[in-house]
Nucleic acid binder design. Structure first.
Lengths: 197, 197
DNA sequence: ACCTGAACACCGTTCAAGT
DNA sequence: ACCTGAACACCGTTCAAGT
């Protein structure tokens, strides 16, 4: 593994361990065992290193979503599997989740990162479209419906990551909120997922 | 206006102008015309100053929601008015919105800030409960339903503030997404808001 | 009580120099 | 090509001293 990859790996671990503030270039360099300015041999600046972390994780999502697409699940269960992957990642790695889905600087990077991010979103959009064709989701504009589902789950994850889901009891979990959403928007009288039967 | 209030005012303006990174204690102090460490005479640290900004804005929300509660709107229109106030604030002041509704450090502060935040949430929850009684929202657990609506709108606002709502076209606006959500979850065959008639 | 100037440790970033 | 040590400007925070 080259120094660049090792720096990304170390930054990723520091994000998990101490949040974004813990990812100083000096700490990253020390974790890899190089001098404090060696990162500049591999990345333009701190933002570019964080973008490297985001790109790696987005590409992992693309792979996961490809696997789901090729699986034998029903259309609505593919939607659920994709959301579940997002939720598991978001709950296990809140700082990295925010880097990918909330950080304003990351959204402006472009290049490989943007390609991977768009591929992930397009794959999810395809799951929604297929579930609509199967009559398991309402026949609205696919882009609008995809955006709403995605935003709702993102909101639940972000409120959780931001510590806003503790005091107001009954707020329940991200998984429960997502499940409720899918039930509420399901077309009346249509088939539900296999889990509900 | 005392120095403490002027510091909060200046921090608020810097948040709007340049985001959280622009709010350095030195810049805040300079804006008010005091030395760079005077903020420590009024706040424990930088986090406490930001908490002061958040408290002020939460208290403004509490007032706005009180006004809505006392207005002559129908129950579902009170829900919509509250969400609209949240959306207008979020779109006009993204950095401050994130401070109030996303920042992990702010959630842990307690005291006056927590009181104001809980009052805001409780008022919104009351609007949802009243709309349920009126048959304009489904008869689920009020806390769960409140949480889901709140999370969905928060997700739309956060994706927008994070720059995630531009490329994937069809993502539409926060207002449209919110309006779609309320339509999708409305009880079948029940009355909609006055806007739809 | 409120404010100030100097100082400390830390950080991102740059640069000349080494292999 | 890759790495290093020194340096710069900036930041949060502390402290002794002033009114």
């Amino acid at each position: 593994m080259g120094t660049g990859e090792r720096l990304v790996e170390a930054a990723s671990a520091l994000l998990d361990a101490g949040g974004e503030a813990a990812v100083t270039l000096r700490a990253v360099a020390q974790a890899v065992g190089v001098s404090h300015n060696t990162p500049y041999r591999h990345f333009d600046d701190r933002a570019a290193l964080l973008a490297g972390v985001a790109t790696r994780d987005f590409e992992a999502f693309s792979e996961t979503f490809s696997d789901i697409a090729m699986s034998s699940r029903t259309p609505i269960d593919k939607v659920k599997a994709a959301l579940e992957a997002l939720i598991i990642y978001g709950e296990a790695h809140p700082a990295r989740y925010r880097l990918l889905f909330s950080d304003p600087a990351i959204a402006a990077v472009g290049g490989r990162l943007e390609t991977a991010a768009l591929a992930t979103f397009a794959a999810f959009s395809k799951f929604v479209a297929d579930a609509q064709v199967a009559g398991e989701l309402p026949p609205l504009s696919t882009a609008t419906l995809t955006g709403l589902i995605y935003a709702a789950v993102h909101g639940l994850l972000d409120l959780r990551a931001g510590g806003r889901m503790r005091k107001e009891k009954g707020f329940s979990t991200v998984v429960e909120g997502t499940s409720l959403l899918l039930k509420l928007i399901a077309p009346a009288g249509k088939a539900r997922s296999s889990e509900d039967r």
